[in-house]
Design a protein around this nucleic acid. Structure first.
Lengths: 217, 217
DNA sequence: TACAATACTGCACAAGTGTTCACATGTACG
DNA sequence: CGTACATGTGAACACTTGTGCAGTATTGTA
């Protein structure tokens, strides 16, 4: 991919630098000065080249008329800028993504890494409380990355609301019921007649599917 | 705050638009054309004003020499932009951070979340191969976040080089030796006489300390 | 009424800037 | 050996662009 000569790469860098520092791209003569070219055509040659290679947009007859172009699979800046809101441990109490005051923190993540292709993925973080999912590699204090959705497939790890408490469990679709089971034999599975239904007086719903995990050691 | 006239606000907008669309600010005459001024001094007057008001930086005698100055606008902190290079599984073969060709991918992370305060932290990612750290919650395929350093404290999880292979182990400082132990009873601990020393013909060194973990499910 | 400030018009000029054409110098390659 | 190609030099040219200076119209305001 980096089939560019050293000079070409340096010129792109210089253009970026100029845009960053001064707010606009350099002129041909500024490039000449920087690279000790004695003729504007030295710079002009490289600009022409870089345009042909698709790294620059050039507006003819226009001063400073070069523009860096995001090339092919070049990383979208927003890809790295997504801020994942981390909700707190939420031991009891309602888990409400919309209310920003329950946000404990936020961290920058790469949504594509967790399978999200959308520009504005519906991801949020949730700090896990307890060791009920220890056999699934989810430890106390870990942050699980959750994609908001109301349904889940068999075997997926979900964030479920049981009464007014949020828990992380593995979602099992049985013959006549749905079971939320912990990945820890010390915990009893929760049996539900249907998704969102009530059995034994339980009020249950799925809040999202766990698509990733982030841990600071 | 917005003690600007309508025209002034529109001119700032036009400058932003130009930067966004074309990659560089407009000339005075382009502003004139846009705002139906018949004299360049019409634009010039407003640019001068906006400079005095602190909304623009102006580079004299320079074409398109205006720069929007961040006036209390939210700027994305660089902390969300750090790109963590992910090295491959590196089953055997040398693990060299410097050579970019072993990079499998990179993801955006928040170094502060993993305890790094520096602007350019020496973090890298390493995809874990095998289940030797399963009891520490590190599963096959997980990416561990590693801070490059040559020493480690007792009990820390480290990336160690044994011969030419990189492994993730827990670092134990014993009375007369150092032990690299797996978090899985199925694996035998590796005993080393001293850090970087050789025992049983082993060539061992510490490459970094695991400060975090990222998993895509 | 007089005066200042705002928001321009009009025009010429010098410096800034991209463009064109001709030519030089390596380096790789058949 | 010669040819193609990449990477420049050098100089002149014409358009672009910011600048300086003078003037006009409108709107407060004292």
């Amino acid at each position: 991919m980096t089939n560019l000569t050293d000079t070409q790469k340096e010129i792109l860098e210089f253009i970026d630098q100029s845009i960053q520092d001064r707010g606009f791209p350099p002129t041909l003569r500024e490039i000449c000065e920087k690279f000790k070219f004695s003729s504007t055509n030295g710079a002009r040659y490289h600009i022409y080249r870089l345009q042909k290679l698709g790294h620059l947009d050039v507006e003819p007859k226009t001063s400073r008329g070069v523009k860096r172009v995001a090339k092919g699979r070049k990383k979208t800046p927003s890809r790295f800028n997504y801020r994942l809101p981390i909700l707190g441990r939420v031991p009891a109490g309602p888990l409400n993504l919309a209310s920003p005051d329950v946000r404990e923190d936020e961290i920058g993540v790469d949504p594509q890494f967790f399978g999200s292709q959308e520009a504005e993925p519906e991801l949020f973080g949730l700090r896990v409380n307890g060791d009920s999912m220890i056999n699934a590699g989810i430890f106390d204090g870990d942050v699980v990355v959750v994609r908001s959705q109301l349904t889940a497939g068999d075997g997926e790890i979900v964030v479920a609301r049981v009464e007014e408490e949020a828990t992380v469990k593995r979602f099992r679709r049985m013959r006549n019921a749905i079971v939320l089971e912990a990945a820890n034999p010390a915990y009893e599975p929760i049996r539900i007649s249907d998704l969102g239904g009530i059995e034994n007086g339980q009020n249950v719903g799925i809040m999202g599917v766990v698509v990733g995990l982030i841990r600071a050691i």
